[in-house]
Simulated scan of single mutants.
Amino acid sequence: MKLAIMQPYFFPYIGYWQLINAVDKFVIYDDVSYIKRGWINRNNILVNGYPKLMNVRLKKVSQNKLINEIEVSQDLNYNNDLLKTIKESYSKAPFFESVFPIVELVINQHEKNLAKYLAFSIKEVCKYLCIDTEIIISSEISKYNELKGQDRILNICKLLSTDQYINAIGGRSLYSNQDFDLSGIELKFLKTLDIRYPQLIHNEFVPNLSILDVMMFNGPVQTNLMLSDYQLV
């Protein structure tokens, strides 16, 4: 059984979805510390040919809280402005009409818990891209929560009868192949290949934007094909 474990992010880049699609079960790691100025509640979209941050507005943010302890502000005016920015930026994209309703559904949801808010968005994008990987919420797993780092990951792997654990390439320094081998688990890292597509602009291609950019310009079928554009190392 192939497993991946990642914190939830706000419409993350395509590598995140490649990871979900590459495994049998994907754990949303919601019971770890929130990281300020990270990518949990924000990502880049294309505005006038350049990357621009979009954010989920939060209340009482603290790195002393877990992700599932952070609250979404539910600022109606802010959300309307965010939707307006996304609409103006992508209204001429070929798949705007099919993607924008997903954006509206996510941003207009009434969920105040950040982890649940993001889990909902992840599941909605998975539906659009026909990803049928089983999604599991970390805080719902009966595990040894006092463990940290790799030890906690290995504990989850064992509880879920994992044969192969796949992580994003950026976390390579966090894990030991030897420790995973001793636990009978193969450790692999997913490296996204160079993915490019027309963005309806004359500027140089802007990579690593939110999955929204990929979906807006490529639609469900072509984006789904891109989910295989990676290497396991």
Rank of each mutant, 00 (worst) to 15 (best):
Y117W: 12
N68A: 03
T85N: 13
I137K: 11
P94G: 01
E97G: 02
D194R: 04
Y29T: 04
S176E: 09
I135L: 09
I28V: 15
F95C: 09
L190S: 07
F120M: 15
Y144W: 00
H110Q: 14
D229H: 14
L187G: 07
V32D: 12
E88N: 14
A22Y: 07
L159R: 13
V233N: 13
A119R: 06
N145D: 13
K191M: 12
I136S: 10
K92M: 02
L232P: 11
I67V: 14
D194F: 02
N55M: 10
I136D: 11
I14G: 07
Q74A: 02
G49T: 06
I45D: 12
N77H: 12
Q178S: 05
K127E: 10
S228W: 01
S176I: 05
I211R: 02
E186N: 15
I137A: 04
Q109A: 14
K123Y: 00
N79Y: 10
F11A: 06
N218H: 10
Q63N: 13
Q109I: 00
W17N: 01
Q7M: 14
K123W: 05
Q7S: 10
A115I: 08
N21G: 05
I86N: 12
R152N: 08
Q231E: 15
I141T: 01
D30M: 05
K116R: 13
N203V: 08
I70F: 04
N224S: 13
L212G: 05
N145C: 02
I137M: 14
M6H: 15
L190I: 03
D31Q: 10
K123G: 02
V23S: 13
N108P: 00
E97I: 11
N224C: 00
N203D: 07
G149D: 06
R152W: 06
E111H: 06
V72H: 05
E186I: 15
A115C: 06
Y128H: 08
F100P: 12
M6P: 00
N167M: 03
N41C: 06
N218L: 14
K65D: 03
L212Y: 04
I156E: 09
E134Q: 13
M216V: 04
S139I: 07
E124N: 12
P12W: 11
N113W: 11
R196G: 01
L83I: 13
K116S: 10
S139Y: 08
G49D: 05
R37P: 01
C126A: 15
S33E: 12
S176A: 06
N55F: 14
N41Y: 04
R42Y: 04
P8L: 09
A119Q: 06
D24F: 05
Y50D: 10
R42E: 00
Y197P: 02
N21I: 00
Y175H: 14
K116Y: 11
F100W: 13
Y197L: 03
N44W: 10
N41K: 01
S121K: 11
Y13V: 04
L53G: 03
L187F: 04
T85M: 15
S73Q: 07
F120Y: 15
K65N: 10
Y230T: 05
I40E: 01
M54I: 15
L3D: 12
S91L: 12
P207G: 02
A119Y: 00
